[in-house]
Every structure is written in C-alpha cells, then in structure tokens.
C-alpha cells in the first residue's frame, strides 16, 4: 500500500526563495514532473517575467529566458515562431498577466500561439510587497487597498479564464487550484493536458492556478488555505473553460 514520491529531474533541488507556505513551489514541482513525464526537457524553453517567480529559472533544469513584466507571452511567441519545434511556456503571476501583460496574453491567445501559459493567481502582487492586483477580491486589504478593494472605485476582480474563453480562436483554458491535494491532482492533469495540446501543435493553452500568498495576505498558511477555499474558489471557479475540440 502506498507509493514512492521523488523530485522530478526537470526540477532543480536548489532551495527556493519563496515564503513558507507559498504554493509557487507546488506549481514548480508539477511543471517539472509534467516535463519529465512528457520527456521534453531538452526541447523546452521556459519564460519567466517579473514577479515572485522571476527566479523560476533557478529552479528548473532546462533553458530559460527572463522577460520584462507582462511580456512573457510576447517573448514566448518570438521563440515559438522561429523555433516551432521547441516547447515554450510562460510562468506568470496575476499582477504580471492580468495587469501590465493583458494585451500580450489576449493577443497570444487570439492568434492561437502554440505556447502554454502557467498562470498563478494569488489575488495580490507578491514580490513588490502585497499591493492590490486586478484579481484582488472585493474588500480584500492590501498595501494599496488598505481599506479593502473598493469595487466602486477600481471595479471587480478580473476573471482571466472566462475573459480569454470568450475569444473565438480555439484554445485550452482551464482553472484549477493548488491549495489542497485534491485540487492539486486536478491541476497537474490540466498542466499536462496543456503541454500535450502544445506538443500536438493544436492550440494556445493556459492554466490558471488559484494559489495562496500567506505573507502578503497576512495570514498563516493554514488560514490562507481556508480563505482561498471559502472566498477565492467561489469567485474563481475551477473548471475547463475552453477546449479546442469545441470549435
């Protein structure tokens, strides 16, 4: 009874700089495992823009490029267009993708770039110290919404998966969460499916992963999981929002 569990080869064993309880680490692990399972480490290039995960290249064992804040989908487009044989993925936070990088992700999806976007949504800007993001919840306190997000002033949080799913171009758009094992298992399947769609040259793929940020939420990891499950997941509902076959 039981099974073995070990670190993926595509993942380095370098300790990460992420805060205790930050689930970036869980997502890194899954991306590493998927790349191992698909055997594509030698043909993969990762693109990490600015955010807590800008140092992602330290934690993987394959080629990587840094992009400016919000521009990873464009960098990935450049790579994929001149080297369509490479697997290219971006690893972006919500401040990066849903704010400064909105045009880039929408147009990469709309052109149907055969790249994969791993999109980490923790409803806040992490690296810069906890500012409000487009995904910050109504009433959620951050350093730039000290009295809670005022939706009458800055609008409602942005649901990226739903937004991108409205585009006509075929794509694989899914949202999962990484806050508990039962969600993490589904998240892993979605990430693998996204990479497989890319390998088949089928469509653009994006997996939004609801994640926790104990440090900037000002909660323990345990309470962060609770808050994420009771608040975030009700607003950011998991599910496969768009499948290329639907076209």
């Amino acid at each position: 009874m039981g099974k073995a569990f070990k670190k993926a080869e595509a993942l380095s064993d370098r300790p990460t700089h992420y805060c205790p309880g930050c689930t970036h680490g869980v997502i890194h692990r899954m991306v590493g495992e998927v790349i191992d399972e698909l055997g594509i480490r030698g043909k993969t290039v990762g693109v990490a823009p600015v955010g807590c995960s800008v140092l992602a290249h330290e934690y993987f064992e394959f080629d990587f490029m840094e992009a400016a804040h919000g521009r990873a989908p464009a960098v990935a487009t450049g790579i994929k267009r001149v080297r369509p044989d490479l697997n290219v993925f971006t690893y972006q936070g919500d401040g990066d993708l849903a704010s400064i990088g909105t045009a880039e992700i929408i147009h990469a999806a709309n052109r149907g770039e055969k790249i994969t976007a791993v999109f980490v949504n923790n409803a806040i800007y992490g690296m810069t110290g906890g500012q409000m993001a487009p995904t910050t919840m109504p009433g959620q306190r951050t350093t730039t919404s000290p009295f809670g997000r005022n939706v009458h002033d800055v609008g409602m949080p942005m649901r990226v998966s739903e937004l991108l799913s409205a585009l006509e171009t075929p794509a694989y758009i899914a949202r999962e969460a990484v806050i508990k094992p039962k969600y993490i298992m589904k998240a892993k399947r979605a990430i693998k499916k996204a990479f497989q769609y890319q390998m088949e040259g089928k469509c653009f793929s994006l997996v939004e992963l609801v994640s926790i940020c104990p440090t900037n939420w000002g909660m323990t990891p345990q309470n962060s999981v609770k808050w994420a499950e009771e608040i975030l997941l009700l607003y950011y509902k998991p599910g496969e929002y768009k499948l290329p076959e639907e076209m």
């Binding site: 039981g2 099974k3 073995a4 569990f5 670190k7 993942l11 869980v26 993490i184």
Partner: peptide, 21 residues
C-alpha cells in the same frame, strides 16, 4: 502510522518530503 499516501509530498511547496521504495 504512515500510509505512504503522498498527500504530504503533493502539498509540500518545497518538495522536502520524499518516499523511497
């Protein structure tokens, strides 16, 4: 008492828990 079910391994953000066979 460990069932070796890997729940902890899956949840650990730092891949600090492994189960060897």
């Amino acid at each position: 008492n460990c069932l070796f079910c890997t729940s902890c391994c899956i949840m650990c953000p730092d891949v600090a828990i492994t189960i060897t066979e």
